[in-house]
């Protein structure tokens, strides 16, 4: 565990805290994509099946349980909470997210590290995570009014991926040059998807303006 990995994980955790804070205090999930949140539930459950087969550390196990639990809780709020669900931006959250699942699964069948169920599902979850933010980014483009908590949530989520890249560079030089193609390439793709958002987020922050993404 290095400082960049820890910073990445903490940023990821903070993004979820910010999202839950928005939902619980404002009783609103406006601007949040249910499609993206559902994809995260699939990502975490398929990736962390190794909870039963592989023990890395107490830290890893605890974080995995937190990520599964919070992602399920967020989807529960958005789908079933009687007040929160009414604030869902249903008409603007139109990305056909289920179409992302088959290509990621086929890719996982073609390029897993080993041809075992847990390795294939693990690779699938890495590929799916890379594109899971797309419905959320599309929803932000369509939103005329992006509130601060929603903007912060997406920014923290992107920052987590960027920090993981720094972590990989650091690990490459400190841990006898091990290669992790699957997470590296997927992570680069995932971070690149945020480039446009980062640009407008930082610009609005510097100019003290409200965040708006051009369509």
């Amino acid at each position: 565990m290095n400082i960049f990995r820890l910073a990445g994980d903490m940023t990821h955790l903070l993004s979820i805290v910010v999202l839950l804070l928005k939902i619980r205090t404002t009783k609103s999930c406006a601007g949040i994509s249910l499609k993206t949140q559902e994809l995260y539930v699939i990502v975490f459950i398929t990736r962390y099946l190794d909870l039963f087969t592989r023990y890395v550390s107490f830290y890893n196990t605890a974080m995995k349980l937190v990520f599964i639990g919070t992602s399920v809780a967020i989807v529960w709020y958005m789908r079933l909470h009687k007040v929160v669900k009414q604030t869902y931006s249903r008409d603007e959250d139109t990305f056909k997210h289920y179409l992302l699942i088959p290509p990621c699964f086929i890719l996982a069948l073609l390029i897993p590290l080993e041809f075992t169920v847990t390795e294939i599902l693990w690779s699938f979850s890495i590929y799916l995570e890379a594109v899971a933010i797309l419905p959320q980014l599309l929803l932000l483009q369509r939103s005329s009014n992006i509130d601060n908590l929603t903007g912060s949530y997406v920014f923290l989520l992107g920052a987590y991926r960027a920090l993981y890249i720094v972590n990989w560079v650091y690990r490459f030089f400190t841990e006898t040059h091990k290669i992790r193609w699957i997470p590296w390439i997927s992570g680069l793709v995932q971070t690149a998807l945020y480039a446009d958002f980062f640009y407008y987020y930082i610009k609005s922050w510097k100019n003290h303006e409200k965040l708006r993404l051009p369509a």
């Binding site: 974080m63 080993e114 693990w122 890495i126 091990k178």
Partner: peptide, 10 residues
């Protein structure tokens, strides 16, 4: 150079 999985990360 050795190719490994990334199971130790989250």
């Amino acid at each position: 150079l050795k190719v490994v999985s990334g199971h130790d990360e989250l």
